[in-house]
Design a protein around this nucleic acid. Structure first.
Lengths: 225, 225
DNA sequence: AATGATCCATGCGTATTTTGATCGTTGAAG
DNA sequence: CTTCAACGATCAAAATACGCATGGATCATT
């Protein structure tokens, strides 16, 4: 999951960033609205966290611009306490949720998790695909009720594919969502991780869990239940 | 599109209903929260419009119940003017947008459109041309509901032609769109791929899927639906 | 420092793409 | 009605690019 953080106050920005890091989300940051607009227009994020009080381009305006460009990833806005009008104008501009500063890290984590879950069209936090179950809140994976230990990249790769079950996902789409901005594109990490996932979750290949469409990408082949 | 309307005041309910009728949406109505819960649990709507002030079961509670039952169609809530707390608790319960009463019919229409559009953002965008279906987000192609496996160049050639259905597309236009700039022009790759597409998708030629306009290019002959 | 995770380089096998040779079609000119 | 030339279709072989496995290097975390 790739997240855009637009926050002008450095300490808060860093705090959010490190929180996101513990969750293993790939993050890009912007310190003002204009930079946020650039990044948000340029890349396909899974979620954006936007402070409403921003220099150069107001948060509300930023959201409006992003929405008018058909960027429709979920947006969580941060507002100063008690500033009802701001929240509402933010929501009106197209934000999906808000959080008042100061906030508990735990709460931010929960809201982001909820937004990501909803955005992917899954209501429950346990995704079932035949014998494979993914608990997205605990970040644990099971095959036939036995837990399969995955590393965080293996887990992220799997969930991204599973949340787009049936679709061909190109390697570049995977790298874009699993890694932050500056990532060396020509590498075969993705192949390696897909290989590991196949080995760990479908060693004998009987599930045909992840198939490769040469030139088009990978496809998670189990139906959601 | 099927829409659930939960509103206790009869005049307003009728007004919304007639507005929705002009939009050709199929609507069910409920006059209280309990009835709303029954309908919302029973049927799979594309959207629900819910007034927060409801008899028998509060709107917020209704939303919570629906969400807990994994009904995740978008929900638009109606609130009395200036009742900030209500909006927020409604959004918190799982609503997607809100509108304050009284409202302009035009505004309700716009918001519903926006919500439906957003909700369909995750549905796969399938282009249908008679018996041929192209799922552009999954990059998969079907003929008469059976999947046809295409290679990436075959797929790209097909989608380019299909997205310009009815028009003559010259071979040079195709090469320009399928290849990076400097491509060796005198080659018959395109002919080969068109041949493969015809064989895979219309082996007996009964569809006349892609016709050749000698000297001008190729034409995809099915109408978009 | 030790452990585990992630990343990178290599070589191999194979699906896909490209080529080139040949054959079929078309439409205009003789 | 033929002939001809230009264009497109087809096929199989050749070239290529792609993905995979593997093992070792690097990086992060403890």
């Amino acid at each position: 999951m790739r997240i855009l953080i637009v926050e002008d106050e450095k300490p808060l920005r860093e705090q959010i960033l490190s929180l996101m890091a513990t969750e293993k989300y790939a993050c890009d940051t912007a310190a003002d609205g204009r930079e946020g607009l650039f990044l948000g227009s340029e890349y396909d994020y899974d979620l954006a966290i936007i402070d409403l009080g921003l220099p150069l381009l107001d948060g509300t305006q930023l959201i409006r611009e992003l929405r008018s460009k058909e960027r429709n990833f979920p947006i969580l806005i941060l507002t100063a306490r008690g500033n009802w009008q701001d929240k509402v104008s933010g929501l009106e501009a197209g934000a999906d949720d808000y959080l008042t500063k100061p906030f508990h890290p735990e709460e931010l984590r929960a809201r982001i998790h909820a937004l990501l879950r909803r955005a992917s069209g899954h209501a429950s936090s346990v995704l079932r695909y035949g014998p494979i179950a993914i608990d997205t809140s605990a970040k644990r994976v099971f095959r036939d009720d036995a837990e399969v230990e995955l590393t965080s990249f293996e887990y992220n790769t799997l969930t991204y594919l599973a949340m787009h079950a049936g679709k061909n996902i190109s390697k570049s789409e995977l790298t874009e969502h699993l890694y932050a901005q500056d990532y060396d594109r020509d590498s075969n990490v993705i192949e390696v991780f897909v290989g590991r996932l196949r080995k760990k979750l479908d060693a004998d290949g009987s599930l045909n869990l992840i198939s490769t469409q040469r030139g088009l990408g990978y496809r998670f082949n189990l139906d959601k239940q």
